[in-house]
Design a protein around this nucleic acid. Structure first.
Lengths: 349, 349
DNA sequence: TCCATACCTGTAAACGATTACTATGCGGCT
DNA sequence: AGCCGCATAGTAATCGTTTACAGGTATGGA
């Protein structure tokens, strides 16, 4: 079933059928109607490969993430995919599992497929990958890459602002001794979060004890380890900020197991705002990072990249502090959470 | 940069280059080496659209899931994608969000893309969708569809066996009053699980009280509601099986909040074995449903569908009971979990 | 010497769309 | 009458591969 069959059935040429398909305005309405009738009758579906070959466009975007198992990403994928679908674009998916090899392989696959654009929504991007993308001239959008140029766009998360909000919130609650559980130092996003936290402390003019700076793995196990460590300290912090929610959740549960109360014995702040964080007991105070926002900006950044009309090359996303029940005033800690700096916006809506 | 450029550079014809690319054995090794050298030197990458057009194959499989936000699916997607990648196949992804409209739209998109096969890994499939797929003659694999035929394959989960194991486990622990929290009745998978549980009760010759059969929503909220309901009953069950883990987790947390102990006041069994289920306190006894297994069988079922050599059209997956700490003997319930019918296999390995 | 065979390579016709260019018809203007 | 411009539609080249078919050459056997 090809365009010629349709053309014959409708008594026109292939060019006319093609014009109808692409809604060119150069076809008389009565003819177009006849062609559309034939298309429907024959159940004709245009051949995508032929179209792609001829036009050079595939209407496919590539989406690269580092770890689909991290609950952060499914949200992102869902939003990106549904947005793309609404624009008639399909999404081919690549998961790197934090492996540079898989990242490179994934990029190669996408380039071979002639995708019209690529969103690399992981902070772990090697120079080799960047070089490869640069050669290809495909529009690309990154997450949190420091250097950009050419056909590249960038989405930056303002970690400093986010952590400053969190630290300030804790400071208002009377906390002066604030610890941090970092992510694995091999992840650049973890390093960046750690740096941002330290900056936030300085901004809020709070002291930092070397001992209060722990290293996790961005999984619950890291939080478990951190909890044991913290409660065994002589002079432990009264509040802890975690590099991500999974860490905070692990910490929370181990604190329970050790018979310690969150937030009475320790205030806890996460980062990401996973759906899990609302569910755990107590619900977690955390920094909300909007997946919808990231997905939307990524999509439009790629679209913008398609026509090099300029526009901003970098867009900044602000995390938003969501105060729930895992943080409380240090002075009244035995009475549980008292002061609410901000309320959870989602519970309002 | 096309195949002709490479051919000229290597001093051969395009046919020879093509044969080298497709590793035909009809090319002399010395010639092939020369061609490969040219390919590398020119950084030639074959044009996928042209290949697809000519060969009729796209080397793309479509993957349809109902809800990527459900932690069950990312695992599945990850395994499917990595398997496909290893076979040189890309995955285009469609999320239906349980909407029939989106399901149909997604299938249409995949068919228009000429994918070589489709895995529909959701139980919610309308007849219209099946008809559409049937016309297309593309190999398709379903999850839990009762009727199959033509180019269709099916992966069935043996819910009855799974729930029978769970009920038997509880019976061995002395439980006689076992409740069930079902999923939303609009989901066929939820209905099937509910039926299977009732069958399991019969198999184990245990009574069923109408009151012990609750309705949830496959999310934590359903479990929360169920917990409140159960503990307010005069004659409440000593054990509850849930249609999925999310429900069980919600139930668990609300029980905590109500000051009830799991498993001392109530034994709890989930279904799916999400990573979460190991993390919650107490870790959840549940039925493990192997995502890797499902993904692998789905992939090979599609491959098998490509050549109609027959082979079984249906493959059955057995859930596996994983005993953790949310179930305990009813007789010694005040002493916590005592009897272990089976151990968690994963903790052994 | 000649033919059969095996092995290697080239020629050129597809695959199914898009689109530049060309053709036709018709109304209006000089 | 002749010409122009506009709206509409057709012809055919083109995108970059794959592959059926057709050579061509070397080897071995008769």
């Amino acid at each position: 079933m090809d365009i010629l069959t349709v053309a014959r059935h409708a008594g026109v040429s292939t060019a006319t059928v093609s014009r109808v398909l692409n809604s060119s305005n150069k076809v008389k309405e009565t003819t177009a109607a006849r062609v559309r009738a034939s298309i429907r009758k024959l159940q004709y579906v245009p051949n995508t490969s032929a179209r792609n070959l001829r036009s050079g466009k595939t209407n496919v975007y590539g989406l690269v993430v580092s770890d689909i198992r991290n609950p952060f990403f499914p949200d992102l994928i869902e939003h990106f995919e549904s947005l793309a679908t609404n624009h008639g674009i399909d999404v081919t998916f690549a998961n790197t599992g934090y492996s540079e090899e898989r990242l490179l392989a994934g990029i190669s696959r996408l380039l071979e497929r002639n995708v019209d654009g690529i969103a690399i929504l992981t902070s772990e991007v090697s120079q080799a990958a960047i070089d490869k993308l640069h050669e290809s001239e495909v529009p690309v959008v990154f997450l949190n890459q420091p250097e950009i140029g050419g056909q590249f766009r960038n989405i930056t998360i303002d970690y400093v602002q986010g952590f400053t909000d969190a630290v300030e919130h804790l400071r208002m609650l009377g906390h002066r001794k604030i610890g941090f559980v970092a992510g694995p130092p091999v992840l650049s996003s973890a390093v960046r979060r750690r740096e941002a936290f330290l900056t936030a402390l300085k901004v809020c003019k709070l002291p930092m004890e070397r001992e209060w700076l722990l290293e996790g793995d961005h999984k619950t196990t890291g939080g478990q380890f951190a909890a044991e460590h913290i409660f065994s300290m002589q002079n432990h912090p009264t509040a802890v900020v975690c590099s991500n929610d999974m860490t905070a959740i692990g910490l929370l549960q181990t604190a329970h197991r050790l018979g310690r109360s969150i937030p009475n014995d320790l205030s806890l702040v996460g980062f990401d705002d996973l759906f899990l964080s609302e569910i755990v007991q107590p619900p977690l105070t955390t920094l909300h990072l909007s997946r919808q926002d990231i997905a939307t900006r990524a999509f439009y950044a790629i679209q913008a990249g398609t026509d090099y009309t300029g526009g901003p090359r970098t867009t900044v996303i602000q995390p938003r502090l969501v105060v729930r029940a895992s943080t409380a005033s240090v002075a009244h800690s035995h009475r549980g959470p008292q002061v609410r700096q901000k309320t959870d916006r989602r519970s309002r809506s």
